[in-house]
């Protein structure tokens, strides 16, 4: 949810269909409620309620349709334009939505996106964002919220959305555990699992938060770039777009770079796996073979978790 023009439609088309950033200005401002059934991981369905926020409309909508909108919500995402001149009005609507949510879907996770961060000068971004976070946390009262700064022009969008969809994947921890076993079998530093169409990160072999990590954790040893997951999503997504412009479809990638060896290949019918190895002795052919052997196990794991 969010005011008209805050960027919801652009964001959704970036994440859920192959729509390059330069095309979004051609989408008309949303004036109706858009309900999008987005297939994710094959069996999981995300409903995106894209409320227009044309003021009169939004007013009546929020009061009369309250139960319809706020029942059975798993996640609420509220988008704020960082440059909005009507922050107070935005916050008013936001509080209203939050109230509806606590009334009809108590368990829902709340994500707040401070969007179009690219419009803020680079040097001021951190300060502006901190100020917004404080403001939004205050407006949220008791409710725990996660706030992300986003822009459709960089990887921040993927970081926010990966963490959003992660709350929807019931067995992320179990997947993580098996990825860790798989990583060890490949002598890999890290293994990352992506959803096939969005290339959002579903799970990684690394412990979820740094407090769990220990000194022998390979990722900790190599001190890898903390932004690597969302940057990878962004890079692969944009390369997939380049391929589709040639009416080709991206299939797989193998790298033997100066920095590392890696294979990115299909794992299950709706996931891709990235195996990153720093040990120079390991060859891509061996990694590919390991992926092939792990496929069935991961199909099973995924089947178990999502049929519910």
């Amino acid at each position: 949810m969010g005011a008209s023009g805050s960027g919801k439609t652009s964001m959704r088309s970036m994440i859920f269909s192959n729509n390059p950033a330069s095309l979004t200005s051609r989408l008309g401002a949303t004036i109706d409620v858009e309900q999008n059934h987005v297939r994710f991981l094959g069996d999981l369905i995300l409903n995106l309620w894209d409320c227009g926020g044309q003021d009169a409309f939004m007013d009546s909508y929020l009061t009369t349709q309250r139960p319809t909108i706020f029942s059975h919500v798993g996640v609420m995402i509220y988008v704020f334009d960082v440059e909005t001149r009507e922050m107070n009005k935005d916050l008013e609507y936001y509080r209203d939505c939050l109230e509806g949510l606590t009334q009809f879907s108590k368990e829902a996770n709340v994500f707040l996106l401070v969007h179009k961060m690219d419009l803020v000068r680079e040097g001021e971004r951190a300060i502006v964002f901190q100020r917004k976070v404080a403001e939004l946390e205050k407006a949220s009262g008791e409710t725990a919220v996660k706030v992300y700064g986003t822009s459709i022009f960089d990887e921040s969008l993927y970081k926010a959305w990966s963490s959003i969809v992660n709350t929807l994947i019931p067995n992320a921890r179990n997947l993580s555990k098996h990825l860790r076993i798989f990583a060890e079998a490949c002598s890999a530093t890290e293994v990352v699992l992506f959803e096939r169409t969005t290339f959002l990160v579903i799970a990684t072999s690394s412990p979820a938060d740094s407090s769990e990590s220990f000194s022998s954790d390979p990722v900790a040893v190599h001190a890898l770039d903390p932004k690597r997951y969302e940057r990878t999503s962004e890079l692969i997504k944009s390369f997939k777009q380049s391929c589709s412009r040639l009416r080709e479809e991206f299939n797989s990638l193998e790298l033997e770079l100066a920095e590392f060896t890696a294979v990115l290949d299909e794992m299950t019918k709706n996931t891709y796996v990235l195996v990153v190895v720093h040990n120079p002795v390991i060859e891509t052919a061996a990694i590919k073979m390991n992926i092939q052997m792990a496929r069935r196990k991961f199909e099973e794991l995924q089947g178990d978790s999502l049929v519910s």
Partner: peptide
């Protein structure tokens, strides 16, 4: 490819690569 390289670059001291 040039963007990928630095992403998973090891910052470990004395990386064998």
């Amino acid at each position: 490819l040039t963007s990928f390289g630095p992403l998973y670059k090891s910052n470990a001291e004395g990386d064998i690569r």
